[in-house]
Design a protein around this nucleic acid. Sequence first.
DNA 1: GTTAGCACTCGGCAGGCGAGAGTGCTAACA
DNA 2: TGTTAGCACTCTCGCCTGCCGAGTGCTAAC
Lengths: 351, 351
Amino acid sequence: MQRLTLRQEQLLRLIIHEYISARKAVGSKALVEHYQLPFSSATIRNEMAELERAGLINQPHTSAGRVPTDSGYRYYVEHLIGEPRLAPSEQMMIRHQFRQVEAQLEGWMQLAVTLLARNTGNVSVVTTPRAKVSVARVKHFELISIQEHVILLVLVTQESGVKQSFLHWHEEVAQADLRLISDTCNARFKGLSAAEIDLLSEDETGLGRLVAEQLSERLRELDNATSLDLQHAGLEHALLQPEFAGGQAAGEIVELLGNGGFLSALLPQVQPDSPDDVQVFIGSENSADALQQYGIVIATYGVRREVIGLIGVLGPRRMPYERSIGSVRYMAGLMSDLVGRFYYTGDYAEE
Amino acid sequence: MQRLTLRQEQLLRLIIHEYISARKAVGSKALVEHYQLPFSSATIRNEMAELERAGLINQPHTSAGRVPTDSGYRYYVEHLIGEPRLAPSEQMMIRHQFRQVEAQLEGWMQLAVTLLARNTGNVSVVTTPRAKVSVARVKHFELISIQEHVILLVLVTQESGVKQSFLHWHEEVAQADLRLISDTCNARFKGLSAAEIDLLSEDETGLGRLVAEQLSERLRELDNATSLDLQHAGLEHALLQPEFAGGQAAGEIVELLGNGGFLSALLPQVQPDSPDDVQVFIGSENSADALQQYGIVIATYGVRREVIGLIGVLGPRRMPYERSIGSVRYMAGLMSDLVGRFYYTGDYAEE
DNA sequence: GTTAGCACTCGGCAGGCGAGAGTGCTAACA
DNA sequence: TGTTAGCACTCTCGCCTGCCGAGTGCTAAC
């Protein structure tokens, strides 16, 4: 696509801004008045005709105003907004809020997704960061007596995954005895994968066998954890958008977010290797049918190439891309930072 | 309120059923035709006038059909549906699904809320069961090395609560050393509450002090856990109801469920001491303003009087009460059963 | 290159109208 | 006494119609 003239670009920008905030097709006259342009509406009309020929805007019907097309938004995102950053004051406010919260992953995710939704006025989503390696192996586990018949098993894998589960056993076992069992089993199973434990577990008897079975089961859960779990916030923003106000569309977006449909539609098109870099998908640019009516601003976060999560914003195609991109970029960077410390370095207290 | 005649009761039942399924005001003629009543529409009209005088139904406007009032639904729930039970085949199907899932609380809650939503065609909610005792005390904890600077702390309280958190420490500590530390600290802190640990922690140094601080923090979190956390499912059902289809109402219900507003509005009016017994709140019967437009069917579940959770259904006033009450009662019983075994007895495998 | 003017298009809205559903009342009937 | 048929009346809803205004493209003049 060839580059537009400066005036055309500014015009496109104005059309998009106006359409985003007023959510109805924008006409030449209204545009001139509202922004006090130094041209008459007729001139604007000529330019608009040009933009329409270029496929960047179109009219829903004759004698209506113009509405940006997907390519129009694309041009805007590529050429007209540069690399938006959050204002320093906003960055400070966000960092401040993160300092208030417990230094734990769930808290960070919860806070990030909430702030992002509030900041962009749209639905925002975040996934847990996941290691990319595929076969989980035992690093260490502990057994803790909870109640008469209930034992807690805590498993840590070599990839720093943590998993806990409850064992039920027919008789009470003292904590000291649990320790003996866990010591021998730890020695035996250290470094093994689910399949390898299965081979050994047949030789085990009694509680040891139950432990082996549980370990194997948990490891397999980690292995099969293709389903990154998705958290979202700000759903109410989307429901207030006229695009999704009808019961039909509202139901669709809720289902999309609720049952994993969103992730499985989104994942194939996300480049996992552009850390902290924001990717934008506008309407028909989405490969999955289910996403055709949305605009998506998403980034990966994590540590180097080892653990990767997603964080981003989901909204109607008519979305404040500039602000969204800035916010998502900042949030992804912040989350990468936090997860990095969390996985690899010392205390978070002094910031 | 005085009792109605048999025919009036049947009529009320029909009106409610018809209104629930067809969701528009029901008229005398349509009723006679649809259910092939052995009376003419004129007779039905007379009876309807009587029901209206009793305040059980009313007309939205002259020459419209009749719509049940809150008192109408109340009469229906009290006198016309008895003690609905789920069909045995449905019970079996549900139990079967529970057998497929990991024997853990989160899994059960997730499954229960999903099934309940599907079964009733409405939004369903569930909270974690919480012990009613107020001060948490250490029973046992373990320290597990995760990575160079990261240690996992798993805490079990005397009330069988489990809490985990990550510690960051400036140097690597071998698992064996962690065990030494945890042994001495366990001996020292066993049976203590947050406040009591705070007193001792000043004498501690090094890692022991960090552990003490963390333990105290986690215990306080358990103490202050007034905010039962709420899970919900089936939101899409509500959004498809015409009552909530507008963006306005849709936004309200999402916010209600999303930020704790629902629980804080509901809790004051729920009787906590009627275990497994279903409570119904219809429209204006709800004490909180925010709930006036909803019908709520809710039950407590848990173990004796010690741990109590909520499970139930939220929908428009026009809600299938009979089916909802049956489903909620069954689910609450099932959850009580599961939680009971989980906290107090042996294996769940054989059902 | 810009602008004023003009004829034209079309969505949205208000108003009028008729159909249909529903009601209460009255009088007749079993 | 309870039930029913008939009737006059009311009100909503959907449909049509005509008008208003916003917006457009084109042309001619500056």
